[in-house]
């Protein structure tokens, strides 16, 4: 049984769906960040698979830039989260509803 591009795309879809479920149902911001990491990783798998099956290196390049963006997102996000936690003592999403009318 040969593993083709479709196998990888389906796997990427499944992982993306898992990440989206996490984004929708999590209330703790730290675990929300974990779910976004899953989203970024599932897209990376699709990029690497397309790069392999078309013999083109562009997909791998984009996967590198996605990894760089994920790293900087974690740095800035965790910094903001620490500031919020110092000020409010909680990182639940419900504590950020100050703009609800």
């Amino acid at each position: 049984m040969e593993i083709g591009l479709n196998h990888y795309l389906i796997l990427s879809t499944i992982l993306f769906a898992i990440g989206l479920v996490g984004v929708m149902r999590r209330k703790n911001l730290l675990l929300l960040f974990f779910a976004t990491e899953i989203l970024l990783n599932s897209v990376n798998i699709a990029f690497a698979a397309i790069s392999h099956y078309y013999g083109d290196l562009t997909g791998q390049m984009f996967a590198f830039f996605v990894i760089a963006i994920a790293a900087s997102e974690v740095a800035v996000g965790l910094g903001l989260l620490i500031v919020w936690y110092k000020r409010h003592g909680t990182i639940d999403l419900e504590s950020m509803t100050s703009m609800r009318g």
């Binding site: 929708m24 999590r26 730290l30 675990l31 974690v74 990182i91 639940d92």
Partner: peptide, 20 residues
């Protein structure tokens, strides 16, 4: 970095979930 950040937060308690 996440493990380091978790030291700042109160993560020992159970995480509440959205009801939907």
């Amino acid at each position: 970095l996440y493990a380091f950040g978790m030291m700042f937060f109160d993560t020992t308690r159970e995480v509440k979930e959205k009801k939907g």
